[in-house]
Each structure stands twice: as C-alpha cells, then as structure tokens.
C-alpha cells in the first residue's frame, strides 16, 4: 500500500465520520441525500462479496466492514430514526436513483474483466460508485446553502477520489502489471463530477464566506 492509497482510505473514513458526527450531534440529516446513501450501501454490499472468499489483510477486512456498516446505519437513521427522519429533505431529494442502479448493472453485464458472478458485481459497484454522488450534488445545488459539516463531508469524499487517482498513477509506474482500467476510467469520471463542487468550495473558503452553490 502506498501513501496515496492510504490517504485516500483515510479521507474516505473521515468523510463517513463527518457524516455520522453531523447526524448524531445535530440529530438532523438536512442537506444529506438518502438516495446517495442508499447507493453507497448497494455499492459496498456488491463490491465486498469477496469478504467471504479472499482475505487480503486485517486492514482491508476491517475497512470493508466499517464502510458497509456505516452506510447501512446512515440509511437506517434517515429512514427510521424518530428524530433524524423529520429533517430529511424529502421534497428536494427526488433523483430517480433506481435508474442509475439499472443502468450500471446493465453496463457491468457487458463491460467487465471476466463474466463471473463476482466480477460482474465488482464492475457494477465501481460504475455505481462513480455516479452515486449525483443525487447528493443535485440536492445541494437545489437547496443552495450548504451547512459546514455537509460541505466537509462532500469535500472529503472528493479528496478520497483524488488520492485514489494519484495511487493508480503511482502503481502504474512502480508495479509491473498494473492495469485496472475499469477502476481508472470510472474513477476519473467520478472525480470529475466533484470539480464543480471543489471550485465553489475553494471560492467560499478563499472569501471566508458560507458555501453557496449557484442554482
């Protein structure tokens, strides 16, 4: 594992902690897209099917369990927690995310490394992760104002993707056989989706102003 990969995993972990902190400390999930959180739950469940078949390291196993557990916990809170669910922006979070699930699954059926149950589900999870942030970005854009913790959540998620790209570049030059083009292409698409958000985050940070996204 190289430093970029580790930094990516850590920013991913921090983003989840920021999200949990927001929900538990403020007992509110306003500004958070349930659609995006459900997509992440599906992404992790589909990708980590190998939990039962391959052991890579304690680190990998623990992180996988944390990602699955935290995404399901957030979905549970937003749907069922007596207090938290009241603040859910139901009327704004209307992205039809099941189309993304269907589209990504179809793509995975045709574009994969090998036609097997695990490889198809792995490719599906990679494609779905690339677009899973869309309902969240659209929700933020529609509501305009972004509270600090929600802004930081999305910022850390974007940073995680950026570090993974550096990780692939590093691996490309240091490992003999590193070709994971499905991850790399999807990862580039995913990171590009954050470009707009990064831009406005930077502007608001520079002006020391509250983050606002243009409608």
């Amino acid at each position: 594992m190289n430093i970029f990969r580790f930094a990516g995993d850590m920013t991913h972990l921090i983003s989840i902690l920021v999200l949990l902190l927001k929900v538990y400390a403020t007992k509110s999930c306003s500004g958070i897209s349930l659609k995006t959180q459900e997509l992440y739950g599906i992404v992790f469940l589909a990708r980590y099917l190998d939990l039962f078949t391959d052991f890579i390291s304690v680190y990998n196993t623990v992180m996988k369990l944390v990602f699955i557990g935290s995404s399901l916990a957030i979905v549970w809170c937003m749907r069922f927690h007596r207090v938290v669910k009241r603040s859910y922006d139901r009327d704004v979070d209307t992205f039809r995310h099941y189309f993304l699930v269907g589209g990504c699954f179809l793509l995975a059926l045709f574009v994969h490394e090998k036609f097997s149950f695990r490889e198809v589900f792995w490719a599906f999870s990679i494609y779905l992760e690339a677009v899973a942030i869309l309902p969240q970005l659209i929700l933020l854009q529609r509501s305009g104002n972004v509270d600090n913790l929600t802004g930081q959540y999305v910022l850390f998620l974007g940073a995680y993707r950026g570090f993974y790209i550096l990780n692939w570049i590093y691996r490309y030059f240091t490992e003999d056989q590193f070709s994971r083009w499905i991850s790399c292409v999807s990862g580039l698409v995913q990171t590009a989706l954050y470009a707009d958000f990064f831009y406005y985050y930077f502007i608001s940070w520079k002006n020391n102003a509250k983050l606002k996204l243009p409608a």
């Binding site: 990969r5 190998d50 391959d54 890579i56 990998n60 992180m63 996988k64 097997s116 993974y164 990780n167």
Partner: peptide, 10 residues
C-alpha cells in the same frame, strides 16, 4: 495465480 484477480483496493 488465482483465476480471478484479487482486488486489493477498497
């Protein structure tokens, strides 16, 4: 080498 590529990333 296993038949399927072991995915070592998260």
């Amino acid at each position: 080498v296993s038949e399927e590529d072991v995915k070592d990333e998260l």
